[in-house]
C-alpha cells in the first residue's frame, strides 16, 4: 500500500537517494469512522482521495541471498493510469532518537506492458493483493488508510477477501537521505491520533516467522 500508481517522485538524473520515512498502524473496522473523522479534521484535504489498487510483487532470484524485489501497482479505479513500479530498500529501524522507520525508495511510472517486461527480465510474481482505501495529505505527509485483501482466484481482482478486520494505516514522507527531522513531524502527528490508533515503527522482519 505504498502509493497510488502515479509518479510520486520522478527519478530525474539519478535522484534515487530518496528515503521513505514510515510509521504504520492499524484500526479496527468499528474505529474506522472516528479515525477518518479525525483525519478529515487534521489534514489538508477535507475529502480524501479514494483508491483501489492491485499490487503484484515480483522476485528476481539470484544464485544466493535474498531475492531482488520490485512492486508493480496498477489502479483498478483508473485503468488507464500508468502502472507504478516501486523498489523498497531494507528498512532501518534506527534508535529512539529517530521516530520513524526509514527505507530507500524508488518510484517510477511504467507502461501497461510492465508485467511482460518484468517476466522477460526474469522476474517472477511472488504474490499479489488488492488494497483500497483513502489518502489524506498534510504538508509533505501522506496518510493512507486502507484495507488489504487477498485474491481468491489468481489474477482476478474482483474476487477478493479482506485478510483482516482492521485497516492498515501508513504515515509516510519522502525525503532526501539524512533528513531525520521530518520524523519529528510524523511523531507529533501520530500523537494526535492517539489513543484511537497507535502508529509506530513496525519491523516486518520480526513478523516473518
Amino acid at each position: 500500500m505504498e502509493a497510488p500508481p502515479v509518479t510520486v517522485m520522478p527519478v530525474t538524473g539519478g535522484t534515487i537517494n530518496m528515503m521513505e520515512y514510515l510509521l504504520q498502524g492499524s484500526v479496527l473496522d468499528q474505529g474506522l469512522e472516528s479515525l477518518l473523522h479525525r483525519l478529515r479534521g487534521l489534514c489538508d484535504n477535507l475529502e480524501p482521495e479514494t483508491f483501489k489498487d492491485h499490487e503484484l510483487v515480483y522476485f528476481l532470484k539470484g544464485q544466493q541471498g535474498s531475492p531482488f524485489i520490485l512492486r508493480a501497482r496498477r489502479s483498478l479505479s483508473h485503468p488507464n493510469a500508468p502502472w507504478h513500479v516501486r523498489y523498497l530498500g531494507q528498512p532501518e529501524l534506527g534508535d529512539k532518537s529517530r521516530h520513524a522507520l526509514v527505507r530507500n525508495c524508488v518510484d517510477v511510472s511504467a507502461s501497461h506492458s510492465l508485467p511482460e517486461f518484468l517476466n522477460e527480465m526474469g522476474f517472477r510474481m511472488d504474490h499479489e493483493f488488492v488494497t483500497s482505501g483513502r489518502i489524506f495529505r498534510k504538508g509533505a505527509m501522506k496518510i493512507v488508510v486502507g484495507s488489504v485483501s487477498r485474491m481468491l482466484v489468481p489474477g482476478n481482482t474482483e474476487n477478493v477477501e479482506q485478510i483482516s478486520l482492521s485497516s492498515l494505516i501508513e504515515l509516510s514522507i519522502l525525503a532526501p537521505a539524512g533528513q531525520d527531522t521530518v520524523s519529528e513531524d510524523m511523531r507529533s502527528f501520530a500523537e494526535q491520533l492517539r489513543p484511537l490508533i497507535h502508529l509506530d515503527k513496525v519491523d516486518p522482519a520480526k513478523q516473518r516467522h
Binding site: 492499524s26 472516528s34 493483493f129
Partner: peptide, 21 residues
Amino acid sequence: SFNPADTNLLVSAIAFGKGLS
C-alpha cells in the same frame, strides 16, 4: 479501536505476502 496483532498481520502481508495467496 486498534489491535496490534492486526497491525503486524497487515504489515507482514504487504511486506512479504504473508497470508496472501
